[in-house]
Each structure stands twice: as structure tokens, then as C-alpha cells.
Design a protein around this nucleic acid. Structure first.
Lengths: 270, 270
DNA sequence: ATTCTCATTCCGTATTATGCAAAGTATTTT
DNA sequence: AAAATACTTTGCATAATACGGAATGAGAAT
């Protein structure tokens, strides 16, 4: 266990009273999670700033535990089934998300629309529940899908109701991508100011909507379930084909808003 | 790093070429995830069969990484926000359909039967993959074929493992058609109650089968790959000429059930 | 006030993680 | 087709680091 060089610098990511090798291992795991896709050993090792041989040993243990798996063909490493189990266990302990998920069928019954529940993850808002109504149309959107921030109703709720620090990196990334593709957002200027006024507008309305921008022919409205700080713990979205639902006073918007208000922690009055 | 006692027994959970301390750490993490609630240090240490002092050091590192958090008041340990993030990253990459498709040749090799993979589409269960065994005979079913809901093993899995709202319209349509044609289903009464008891029976058995009803002379068994909500992501079907495979304890049924269980997302237990 | 239990820190020991080097594999180039 | 290249995996000697047990500190219950 040589701590060969620069031991002072490593103090940063060294947990007081912890296990150094575990710190290194978790750094590796986080790099893999953040990357959003399967990685080769060398890529991973470079990302975590450690020699490949060291990374390989850690990965062997992760693979044995099922937290990471190695794709047969490519030899690349990716998150494994146990990582999912772990995350779902964590999710199951978040009370407000649980309550919302349990109540979701009621909302679907009331509105007759397909509802989805998303929470914030490294890759953006991630769909964790998917309650389908009679009219099925989208099958490309599955559990675990990550939605765009600027381009989806769900994402816009995140922009408006999460700390800027959380969303900033991803907003930046999407703005650059949109600029280079010359995408036209009819209702959005691609500047930090434009984003801020979008967020203000969403907060003023209490919900966000898109109509055929993310998926042509599809309309969606979304609203947040808030914690006591006023931040979104999860986002509820209703999807349909009729753009009429996006009207501020539509029955669907009312139902959604009431639903989310009922599940949010009471906000301290002004 | 004493491996003080009983080194023979530890060989079981020791990853070849891996890091021993990481193995122990992950065992700890799994115990915490399995418990489903916050635990005290000693509880956790006992569950993972290690001295509390060792567990504490590991937990310090986990806490520093955000994978575990310690409740201020009680001092108990629970899964932290990073565990959720990790799981969401894993969820985003879990493409059960693709994984199943990749594994299909293995099932075919094991059972020697032709397998097909279907997903739910607008028109009902749709065949998306064919994996032919040595003895090829069926050619009437092509890629993209949609199967009947009531009359095929594949369809019956959809009835049992998809939300009623999704299948209702098509079930209705098939029932009407069957009634007007005066089709006889030996094992099914064409009422909503009859459908429900069919679904219950399929769920209880874990698989569905038909023998010569859909295509005379052909027997099939089918089982679902489930997401963590318990809904079917896709359906795997084995086809053969021998009706013996439809017996609940046949080798084929066992292989199919094990196959699908392995690909389904673990349901988070209590 | 006292006695538990439980969480945390300290310390010497030797077990085990480490880096380097070499073998083994897959993939691409000449 | 053969060589070269890049990448992954294993072996080995070294000493750095994780280990266990005891001691200390914090809280709750009697």
C-alpha cells in the first residue's frame, strides 16, 4: 500500500477515520455512474486518476458483488443489477416519493391520462414510475428514461424548483447542444437570462407544459412535489395527445396542481 | 490487516483478484440496503458479521462519499442520497429488452427449442426477435407479427402482467370477435370475470401456456421479464410441437422461469 | 448519581493493497 | 494474412495500511 507521492494533496478526498482503499473504490464507482455509459478499464482509470491495474482490482470486487458488470462482448464496465437494487432501496425510504407513487393510480383514474413520476439523478430527471392509462401511445419512454431539462415539461419543473447549483451543469450542456444544432425554441431564448425568466414563469404558473416539442404530437404538463424548503423532491407529469390540456385552467392542470399540492410539505407562510 | 480466524470460510465471499476490504465494505452496504431501514452500528456489524470497530471505519468512508448518511439524532446509519443517484444511473442504462434479446441464444441452447421475444405494441404483443433452434418448422410467424391476447401464451402473459387499462380495449375487441365467431375456448369463459381469473391463474403459476389452440399442433409456454414495478417489459415464449412442455414442472418451464427471473429487476423487499 | 450500552478513537502488528513488469487477448494496420 | 498496437489481466516483492482489542467519550435508563 504505497502512498507513493503527494500525500498532502490526497487529503481532500480522504475520509477522516475511513478506509483509503474504499475511498478510492467509491471514487471509481462515482465516475462510472456519472459517465452515463459503459466504460473501458483505461477510460475509467483515467477518469478516477488511478493506474488501470488498480482500477481493475477494484472492479473485480465490484463485479463479484454485482454492483458493476462487465459486458461480454466489449469488455466494458457498466453499473450492474445490484446498483439498481441499492438505488431502489434508497428510493423506497424517501417518504414523499413513496406517497406520491402510491397515489399516482388515483390521478390516472381521475384524469384518464398516463402519468409518470420522475426524480432528479445525475443524468437529469429520471422516470421512476410509469402509470399507463388506456390510450397507450409512447412505448419508447421506459422506466429509467432521462428527460431533457429545457425541452420537456418535467425538465422545466426541475429548472424552476431545484437549486441552480444542481441543474446548472446540465442546463449548460443542453444549451450548447441546442445552439450547435440550431434548434429553435419558440418560447425560450438560450441565455442564462432566458432560462431564468423561464423558471420565473414556471414558478408563477405553478406548472410547466410542452406541446409537441419534445415528442411531436405529444403534449405534457408537469408539476412538482415540494419539500419544506420549496425544492422539488419529485415531479409528476401527465402525458396526452391533446394540446388543450396545456391551458392554464384546464381540468387536467387543476387536478395535477391539486394532487401535487396535497403531497407537498406545507410551505411556511410568507 | 489480520485475517485472524476462519480464513477458509471467508473464501466464499472473496472475489478472485479483487480487494478484500472492498468485499467486506460492500457486504456491509448490502446488509444496510436489505434491512430497509436505518440501523445502528452494532446491528449492522452483527448483520455483516464483523466487529463494530471495523464497520465504523467503513461507514465513515461511505458517509464521506454520501452513499450512507448518519441521522443526526439517533446516530443510526441509512442509505444516503448518492445511493439513489447511483441507482438512477443504473436504471437509466437497464434496457431489459436488449438484455433479454442478448441472452436469448443461451435459452435456446439450453432447451433446444425455438424462442421468441415480444413487447407490447399498439396492436398487442408484437414479436421483435426470433431465435430458432435446430428443428425449424414454424414460418408463419414473422418479425413484427402481433399475437392475440386471449389465444396465445404470449398474449396471456400480457393480460396478467400489464395494467388493465392497457389491455382492456383489445381484450374487449377479441372477446366480441370470439363470441361472434362462436369460438370455443376450452379453458376460458368469455366474461370480464373469466379474464380476471385467467390472469390470476397465470400470475399464480408464473407462466402461461397453450397447446394447439392458436396454431394446431403447436405448443407454447411464455413468461414475462418484469420491471421493478412488477409490469412486463417483454415476454419470452418457447415454441415446440410436444404438448408435454406445458406441464407446470417440465424442464422447459423451469428453464424459462429461471431465465425470466434472472432478467427481471429484483423487486425491493420489505 | 450511577451503571449500563453504544459510538468513536488510539496504537502496535503483520496482513494485504500497491506499483511495476510481463503475459495474455482483442482489434486494427500494413 | 501477418504484424503491430492497444488494452486487459495476472504475478510478485515491498511496505503501507487495515485490523483487533482496549480505552475514551457520549447518552440513556435505572
Amino acid at each position: 500500500m504505497k502512498n507513493s507521492s503527494a500525500s498532502e494533496f490526497e487529503a481532500t478526498d480522504r475520509a477522516a477515520g475511513g478506509i483509503q482503499s474504499l475511498d478510492a473504490a467509491l471514487k471509481l464507482l462515482k465516475c462510472l455512474a456519472k459517465s452515463g455509459q459503459a466504460m473501458t478499464l483505461t477510460e475509467l482509470a483515467r477518469a478516477a486518476a488511478m493506474p488501470p491495474t488498480k482500477a481493475h482490482r477494484y472492479l473485480s470486487s465490484f463485479v463479484a458483488a454485482g454492483l458493476v458488470e462487465q459486458r461480454e462482448r466489449s469488455g466494458r464496465y457498466d453499473l450492474g443489477p445490484e446498483a439498481l437494487t441499492l438505488g431502489l432501496s434508497a428510493l423506497a425510504r424517501t417518504d414523499s416519493v413513496n406517497r406520491t407513487a402510491d397515489a399516482l393510480p388515483g390521478l390516472v383514474g381521475e384524469t384518464g391520462m398516463t402519468a409518470l413520476l420522475s426524480v432528479w439523478g445525475d443524468q437529469g430527471p429520471t422516470v421512476v414510475r410509469w402509470e399507463r392509462a388506456a390510450s397507450v401511445f409512447v412505448t419508447s419512454l421506459g422506466l429509467g428514461t432521462t428527460l431533457p431539462l429545457l425541452n420537456s415539461a418535467t425538465g422545466r419543473i426541475c429548472v424552476a424548483y431545484l437549486p441552480e447549483a444542481v441543474t446548472a451543469a446540465r442546463i449548460d450542456q443542453e444549451m450548447r447542444a441546442a445552439r450547435s444544432r440550431r434548434d429553435a425554441f419558440c418560447d425560450l431564448t438560450l441565455t442564462s437570462g432566458g432560462i431564468r425568466s423561464l423558471a420565473d414563469a414556471v414558478r408563477a404558473a405553478g406548472f410547466a407544459s410542452v406541446d409537441g416539442r419534445f415528442i411531436p404530437g405529444l403534449a405534457a404538463i408537469a408539476a412538482p412535489v415540494l419539500d419544506w424548503q420549496g425544492y422539488a423532491v419529485c415531479v409528476v407529469t401527465l402525458i396526452g395527445t391533446d394540446a388543450a390540456i396545456t391551458a392554464p385552467e384546464s381540468a387536467e392542470v387543476r387536478a395535477l396542481a391539486a394532487f401535487c399540492r396535497g403531497l407537498s410539505t406545507e410551505q411556511p407562510g410568507p
